[in-house]
Nucleic acid binder design. Structure first.
Length: 564
RNA sequence: UGCCUCGUGGUGUAAUGGUAGCACGAGAGAUUCUGGAUCUCUUUGUCAAGGUUCGAGUCCUUGCGAGGCAGCCA
């Protein structure tokens, strides 16, 4: 029974169409996909697309999805990455596709390296069938012959000799690069990957998962399709660059004459996002050169970075579904991601008053020492979220940007002699601007219209501007990290050095003045500092020193207007 | 250069031979105790030229453009 009927939000795309047709025709007993990361780096939002596709299909068609470490290259893979990848995947699918996550019996992910014994047997089988041979050419010679479409001198070795040499390769008798096992296909094939591709190479190196057991390692092309076959994968989904490898994928499975149905490979376009870089190499460079704080730096498009920034798994999934699946190598505007964040946070975030760049305000006609408790709405989008009390007193902080001594046109916040509403409190009028010796504004002296208190006699008096504020004596100080886009241009890796486009203002750290209730902020919740942005607690937070990360600003039509 | 793939508003996508639609963005307005949210409206598109057909974004041909591959990386 397909889940598609009970999930109307499930998207439609050319791959799901194929799967649906295969389900209809009864080609497979059960749909089985896989997510096959190489454990050589952290997952990023591009992987989100693949995870949501593979798990989404499993989910919609009542199937399962394996997470398989594509670990056939001991030189660059590490256990640290396996753990990080699994944590990210589990987080991403939690409460959504847990049921469809297929793990090994000991609850660990699958590893291509676990199949090395079987893959080796398949290699021997290919040799016995005369479809693979041991080649003694150097890497350079191999390249050269392949370019020229020329058959090498070892191509027609006898089966027995090939079998013997392969065994000796495995036994460690030869140094790295001395020989390879190659498929015997067609050196004149128009597709380069059919010109006797290398199946095994010699690497005397320890492997993160198999240790020193092997000194020959299969290449991706040989290992991947066989791993798919061994796991019973029905639909092997990968990105466009593997398109030209598909004939080889099929050739290997067919050459071995494996029982049908065979897994089939389908390709889709990887995700590209404006104002960021996605390649593992570039992300690693940013991390290694200390240009960001680590793989989980909130400015990075890594899953761990976005999680730390405050982005939720459901936002990422929603985004992945919004962008769709095609074969067109598109460039998605980051606005689509930001929209997904705002769209969800607007529904769930608790509203709080917090002043990021404080300016002191004294209400001169308000009694010294007096305090009032005012009622504030937790979430206007969700009445069930209820209300809370916030203290008001004679001395307050407001946002520096909410006052302009010489206001620009259309500015309707506080100005000398002007009025503005303090949210949930009074309408105040600015009587006096106090400056220090340097001419810097240090304080505003205002008077409140006591009749205008929220709910009061003239509270419905029309005032264009409403601003947020915090009572100075009650304010809680917190650290706030204001993150912005890491790059200043839409396509940082289009040309030139991407690092020269790094946004020098991608992080601003401030000490904010917050309403008291924020002192008990919950790391599981999302907050909107009213009129500013959505925030989440950073793991660096300690009870005595909270740290908030700005996940995404509110839409700011004033900023756009002011630029005109 | 060879081989493979892909071209639908600014962006991401839908339309499976039958009214080119949706979302994001942009612009205008309404409303608002968040310049948020919400609501209304507007704008802009089938790469080009032929062909098949009653009818083509869809099928065919050619051209143009873009991307991928040409590691003993994945």
């Amino acid at each position: 029974m397909s889940d598609a009927a009970i999930d109307p939000t499930a998207p439609s795309d050319f791959i799901r169409d194929i799967v649906a047709e295969d389900v209809r025709s009864g080609k497979h007993a059960r749909i089985h996909t896989r997510f096959p990361p190489e454990p050589n780096g952290y997952l990023h939002i591009g992987h989100t697309k693949a995870v949501c596709l593979n798990f989404g299909i499993a989910r919609e068609f009542g199937g399962i999805c394996n997470v398989r470490m594509d670990d056939t290259n001991p030189a660059r893979e590490e256990v640290e990455f396996v753990d990080a990848i699994m944590a990210d995947v589990r987080w991403l699918i939690a409460g959504w596709a847990d049921k469809n996550l297929n793990l090994k019996e000991d609850a660990t992910p699958f590893y291509a390296s676990d199949y090395f014994p079987q893959i080796y047997q398949f290699a021997q089988e290919l040799v016995r069938k005369g479809k693979a041979y041991v080649c003694d050419m150097t890497a350079e010679e191999t390249d050269e012959f392949r370019r020229l479409g020329k058959e090498g001198p070892f191509r027609n070795r006898a089966v027995e000799e090939n079998l013997d040499l392969l065994a000796r390769m495995k036994a460690g008798e030869f140094p790295d690069g001395a020989r390879t096992l190659r498929a015997k296909i067609d050196m004149q094939a128009p597709n380069i990957w059919l010109r006797d591709p290398v199946l095994y190479r010699i690497r005397h190196a320890a492997h993160h998962h198999t240790g020193d057991e092997w000194c020959i390692y299969p290449l991706y092309d040989f290992a991947h399709g066989l791993s798919d076959y061994l796991e019973g994968i029905t639909h092997s989904l990968c990105t466009l660059e593997f398109e030209v490898h598909r004939p080889l994928y099929d050739w290997i499975l067919e050459a071995l004459d494996l029982p049908r149905p065979l897994p089939h490979q389908y390709e889709f376009a990887r995700l590209n996002l404006t104002y960021t870089v996605m390649s593992k190499r570039k992300l690693k460079q940013l991390v290694d050169e200390g240009l960001v704080s680590g793989w989980d730096d909130p400015r990075l498009p890594t899953i761990s970075g976005m999680r730390r920034r405050g982005v939720t798994a459901s936002v990422l999934r929603d985004f992945a579904y919004r962008i769709g699946i095609t074969k067109y190598p598109s460039l998605t505007e980051v606005d689509a991601l930001e929209y997904a964040m705002r769209n969800e946070f607007n529904q769930i975030a608790l509203r709080r008053l917090a002043v990021l760049h404080p300016l002191k305000v004294v209400i001169t006609n308000y009694a010294e020492g007096k305090t009032e408790e005012l009622e504030a709405t937790n979430n206007p989008e969700n009445p069930a979220a209820g209300t809370r009390k916030i203290p008001f007193s004679r001395e307050l902080f407001i946002e520096r940007a909410d006052f302009m001594e010489t206001p620009v046109p259309k500015y309707f916040r506080l100005k000398p002699g002007g009025e503005v509403r303090l949210k949930y409190a009074y309408i105040i009028k600015c009587d006096e601007v106090v400056k220090d010796a340097a001419g810097e504004i240090t304080e505003l002296r205002c008077t409140a219209d006591f009749e205008s208190k929220t709910g009061g006699a003239t509270s419905n008096r029309k005032i264009k501007g409403t601003i947020h504020w915090v009572s100075a004596p009650h304010a809680v100080d917190v650290e706030v990290r204001l993150y912005d886009r890491l790059f200043t241009v839409p396509e940082p890796d289009a040309d030139g050095d991407f690092k020269s486009f790094i946004n020098p203002h991608s992080l601003e750290v401030v000490t904010a003045k917050c309403e008291p209730s924020l002192g008990e902020a919950d790391p599981a919740l999302r907050y909107q500092f009213e009129r500013m942005a959505y925030f989440a607690l950073d793991p660096d937070s300690r009870p005595e020193k909270l740290v908030f990360n700005r996940t995404i600003t509110l839409r700011d039509t004033w900023a756009k207007e002011a630029k005109k």
